[in-house]
Amino acid sequence: MTTDIEEPRTIVVVSAGVSDPSSSRLLADRLAQKTHDLLHAHGIESRITTIELRTLVDEIGRATVAGFVGEGLRPAIEHLAAADAVITATPVYKAGVSGLFKSFVDLLDNDLLIAKPVAVTATAGSARHALVPDEQMRPLFAYMRALVTPTALFAAPEDWGDGALGDRIARAATELAALIESGVSRSVVDGTWSRYQHQFGSSAQRSGRAVEPGEIDFDTDLMRLATGGRATAAAVPQRS
């Protein structure tokens, strides 16, 4: 639909910070605001939605053991499914992303974030954790087939008094805004959606619209096998 272009882009912040205010949230908010401003300067409006995982901790715990996502997590997942970009933020605990953050990502459908621009950010009590976003968050979102910005953000206590953090935020925001503006996500998804793995009933959206449960590709090996045919000619050795 051509009118989609005129609609505000949605930037969804996922923060695993546990205090209020939290430094993780603060870092994500600064990146979100800067991205918003850069887009605005290019004539593109955007809307920021924030998901505070600390308010969902019961739901996340429950879903983790029950094996399914409860109603309380639906709005967060739907926001992510519809997002034009995602900014993730976690505190570093015991040299890694917080368990709350990872537990939430573990609940997402594998195809929920395909080709979405994602920024990874973390905060910690020491600069010795500076590689957590690059070494832990980046691979996590690579698994999710997301487009992670070249710049990952990290802030230790001393960074909050250093103008260099602002420079890095501006750099990451520029990257994120450029990915949003380029429409690369839609180009990728439109061309390749059927080539990714999808599970029936996933919350994923394809190019800004929900994938209907009935929107099934019947032109597959398995569907041919389901209807009395063969999976592939090649799968069965030719016998003479």
Binding site: G70, E71, G201
Partner: peptide, 16 residues
């Protein structure tokens, strides 16, 4: 072992 209505999309696909 699943939420209310979880299986409806699959049942609807079968019906269709």
């Amino acid at each position: 072992l699943a939420p209310n209505g979880h299986f409806k999309p699959l049942v609807d696909l079968y019906r269709k």
